[in-house]
């Protein structure tokens, strides 16, 4: 399949990339290309210009600073998966990166592209909602911070302006008692989720849950944050009763539709089961 005709530019600085976007309203950023190039081949997108940001230096990194884990938008899934820091301290992120697509796709796919694409089937959006992440968008007028809760505005749409580039994603740095887990049911390696659940909790020394983030992938028009399920956990001792109550509320928050991946009822029941399992694992990790 041959993509439609487009112009291509590979600027080496962020300011040049931003200028190209501002001068060409029909331009699109090219990151890992693993959502955009398939969309071009299927002729679902026909941008006049691709602004390839792979040659812009300094957009791929992982560093802890100022109470955050900062992740450069061009960081590849494979590099998240390989990072000892991520594996040891950010298990929810590690689980997520490992479940995305397949190893070949992960060598190019970027975390920034995954969020900017805002496919309700993408895995990072739910994870970032559970982490209470924030992102930096760079535009012609400078940088602005967008809390992740304000980022996804609909399927395949975000609060990024057409001339902005997502440059950084920040998660709260790990504190004592933090634990997280991402569980995804897929039909085969490389498939999008039939259902997936992201949880990030904190438990204190007494075993009481002090904070909880819980969100769902591919169970609605965007990733869904389950505020009611979170509320069922915070302030409670994290026992089986609390876990089951939260799982029930998560299933209520899901908005699945029947399709070739499963019926509405099947997906909703997956949410219950996955939430229970993810919370148990997150708790185990929080205690380590």
């Amino acid at each position: 399949m041959i993509p439609p005709a487009f112009d291509y530019a590979a600027p080496t600085s962020l300011s040049d990339a931003l200028a190209l976007l501002s001068q060409n309203p029909e331009a699109k950023v090219l990151a890992g290309g693993h959502s955009l190039i398939p969309a071009l081949k299927f002729r679902m997108a026909s941008p006049a210009l691709l602004v390839d940001i792979n040659k812009v230096a300094g957009l791929a990194y992982l560093r802890e600073a100022g109470g955050w884990l900062a992740i450069g938008a061009m960081t590849r899934e494979a590099d998240l998966d390989r990072s000892a820091l991520v594996r040891e301290k950010y298990p929810l992120l590690a689980d997520t990166a490992r479940m995305i697509a397949d190893p070949l796709v992960r060598n190019l796919a970027t975390i920034g592209g995954n969020l900017a694409h805002a496919d309700p089937a993408n895995d990072h959006p739910a994870t970032m909602l559970a982490y209470r992440a924030e992102v930096t968008a760079q535009g012609p007028a400078g940088a602005r911070t967008i809390p992740i809760a304000d980022f996804f505005t609909g399927p395949f749409t975000t609060s990024l302006a057409a001339n902005e580039i997502l440059t950084e994603i920040r998660l709260p740095a790990r504190r004592a008692g933090d634990g997280g887990c991402y569980l995804k049911i897929e039909r085969k390696v490389g498939d999008y989720a039939t259902a997936a659940v992201a949880v990030q909790i904190n438990v204190n020394a007494a075993g009481v849950c002090t904070s909880a983030g819980l969100a769902l992938t591919n169970l609605g028009l965007t990733a869904i944050r389950c505020a009611a399920a979170e509320a069922a956990l915070v302030g409670q001792p994290l026992d089986e009763a609390a876990i089951k109550a939260a799982a029930q509320r998560a299933a209520q928050a899901a908005e699945p539709v029947s399709d070739y991946r499963g019926s509405e009822a099947y997906k909703r029941s997956l949410v219950t089961t996955l939430t229970v399992r993810a919370l148990r694992t997150a708790l185990e990790r929080a205690r380590r």
């Binding site: 590979a10 090219l30 693993h34 691709l50 494979a78 070949l104 796709v105 060598n107």
Partner: peptide, 15 residues
Amino acid sequence: LNGRPVKACTVLAVQ
């Protein structure tokens, strides 16, 4: 590509 296996049907030649 630069040491990592990738799917060449989803990379532009110019890249």
